[in-house]
């Protein structure tokens, strides 16, 4: 087979160097993690203190778990605004079953995760069968599940710390730099998830579903099934995160997931995700979680007023997102 002169042989083809560097989705967030960590450590030595790092790892794991699942869903072109509500609902279900009905720990948590699965199926049903954009569908279920959590708890809150010995173990430090077990597990999940996205058929499938739905359909991918699995995965991870927050705080109340939503989406986007779907990075969301955690902890240590933290984080987010837009443009023809 002879090819035309205009076509250079495959082996000699290489992207220019700057494109290969700028083409790394996680470049920006990784650089930001490094810059902010160094800056905050220079400002206050306690930042790099091992005890401080372990505490950050523990506190960041809950959002990190939700953001992990959310980045898959966003690559598949959908979004779940009910993540915080689902976390609250799971915690409420687990708490009520343990305290009011005397269920054992494992049964209560299983039931709580089952409730989360139902939320995911409901999100998928409204989005895929009623054909409503997931932005609106999950906005609705967000109110619904938050309301359910409040209704289940009847405005009360429970002290559950004595009932959950197994869950508390997950939060204990591991032998590895005293980082908590939950963080180690989450890091493994991120690494495996990212690896599978790059090497298995998971990546092409999710990116096709989110990048061009018609293309996915033409080649025979079951688009509704893929999206449904992603919705359920997000809900289960959020439900699990809610249960873990309950274990961490020792109490159940309906407001466990309040304010999660914006953090989770911010993390996924900082990590390289896109609201249009099709692109994103799993490991990028990990760095996004780390970045958010560093900034929150750094501002706290630097004695920035709690009232002013939102302003600082907002500015950082906008600057980070703008730089990423520039990066993407610079590598396009």
């Amino acid at each position: 087979m002879t090819t035309k002169q205009a076509t250079p042989p495959e082996a000699s083809y290489r992207q220019p160097f700057y494109k290969r560097v700028l083409g790394v989705t996680e470049l920006g967030v990784f650089a930001a993690v490094a810059v902010f960590f160094v800056a905050f450590t220079l400002a206050d030595k306690s930042m790099a203190n091992p005890a401080n790092l372990a505490r950050m790892a523990l506190q960041g794991s809950f959002l990190g778990l939700a953001a992990f699942a959310m980045s898959f869903l966003m690559i598949a072109g959908e979004i779940d605004l009910s993540s915080g509500g689902t976390a609250g609902l799971s915690a409420a279900v687990a708490g009520v079953l343990m305290m009011n009905f005397g269920w054992p720990e494992w049964a209560s948590c299983t039931a709580a995760l089952a409730a989360a699965v139902l939320v995911g199926l409901l999100n998928a049903f409204i989005t895929l069968k009623v054909h409503m954009p997931s932005f609106f569908a999950t906005l609705g279920t967000s109110f619904l599940v938050s309301g359910l959590a409040i209704w289940i708890l009847k405005g009360a809150w429970f002290y559950v710390a004595d009932q959950i010995p197994a869950l508390l173990k997950v939060l204990n430090p591991s032998p590895l730099f005293a980082l908590p077990w939950i963080f180690i597990a989450l890091l493994m999940a991120y690494l495996v998830g990212d690896f599978l996205m790059r090497t298995s058929r998971l990546g092409p499938t999710l990116m096709a579903v989110g990048g061009n739905r018609r293309a996915a359909e033409i080649v025979g991918i079951n688009v509704p099934l893929v999206k449904t699995l992603c919705f359920v995965f997000v809900s289960v991870c959020c439900g699990l995160a809610g249960i873990l927050v309950m274990a961490y705080s020792g109490t159940t109340d309906a407001s466990i997931g309040d304010g999660w939503l914006l953090w989770v989406i911010a993390i996924a986007i900082i990590g390289g995700g896109s609201l249009q779907g099709g692109t994103g990075s799993i490991i990028g969301a990990f760095f996004g979680t780390v970045l958010i955690q560093i900034i929150r902890m750094g501002l706290l240590n630097a004695n920035v007023q709690t009232n002013a933290q939102g302003i600082v984080i907002g500015v950082i987010l906008i600057v980070a997102a703008s730089l990423d837009v520039l990066r993407r443009k610079s590598i396009q023809y």
């Binding site: 090497t199 298995s200 058929r201 092409p204 990116m207 096709a208 080649v219 025979g220 991918i221 099709g278």
Partner: peptide, 26 residues
């Protein structure tokens, strides 16, 4: 044309029929 713009030429041509090693890795 229904192509996935964010994937490369090869991945588009063999989308959903990628040959794998051990049934998992492309």
């Amino acid at each position: 044309l229904a192509l996935v713009d964010v994937r490369d030429v090869g991945s588009n041509i063999f989308l959903n029929m990628e040959s794998t090693r051990w049934g998992i890795f492309i």
